[in-house]
């Protein structure tokens, strides 16, 4: 009996680990509430080359470290066909600072969507920030091209040596393979609705 419960426990753990979309998979669709009270869907971006999809939030220190860099990414890559779409997957009951009114206060130039539908789960995002680079594939789909970190120096933007996300976009632009397609980063675990 003890062995069975142990096995079941391990199985439950492995299910959690298996949930994430893989590089090359079709990007799950979403339609969520933006801070301007409109709804924004992945389908709205069909005319773009891709989307920089970032699960992020207000309260997490790592999200704060990257806030300026995310704004810069949007201003640098929007005109190149890779705009930023940010999604906050946290419940404000668990983190007050992540509430909708606080999201509105940020005044971002890119959509900042409230994930009260568990879209983070479809992507397998586990933490904030967690980046998914989506690439246009065919007429009406996006594929996942890169998953992970924005760069290699979360705590200090001035010490960045490897810009993983920007390098991935540049590779797509140059028609070369993205490398690496998956990186690991520390972040705050998501506390969903």
């Amino acid at each position: 009996m003890r062995k069975i419960s142990t096995l079941l426990f391990m199985f439950a753990l492995s299910l959690v680990a298996m949930a994430q979309v893989q590089v090359g998979d079709v990007a799950p669709a979403f339609k969520l509430l933006n801070t301007d009270y409109t709804e924004v869907a992945l389908d709205d971006y069909k005319a773009q080359e891709g989307v920089i999809l970032i699960f992020t939030c207000n309260h997490c220190p790592y999200a704060k470290f990257y806030e300026e860099r995310i704004k810069q990414l949007h201003s640098a890559y929007k005109s190149q066909g890779f705009p930023v779409v940010a999604i906050n997957p946290n419940d404000s009951v668990k983190y007050k600072e992540d509430g909708f009114s606080y999201m509105v206060d940020k005044g971002y130039e890119f959509p900042y969507l409230l994930d009260n539908e568990g879209i983070y789960k479809a992507y397998g995002a586990t933490k904030t920030p967690h980046v998914f680079l989506l690439l246009k594939s065919g007429a009406d789909k996006f594929k996942v091209g890169y998953i992970g970190a924005i760069d290699d120096s979360p705590q200090d933007a001035s010490e960045v040596q490897l810009k993983y996300l920007e390098n991935a976009i540049k590779a797509v632009k140059n028609g070369t393979a993205i490398n690496p397609t998956l990186t690991k980063a520390i972040g705050c675990s998501i506390k969903p609705f």
Binding site: A17, Q20, T126, K127, H130, K184, A185, I186, G187, C188, S189, I190
Partner: peptide, 13 residues
Amino acid sequence: VDLINPSWSGAIP
């Protein structure tokens, strides 16, 4: 992160 465990996404705890 992978040296601790390859399945770790980096979220804490």
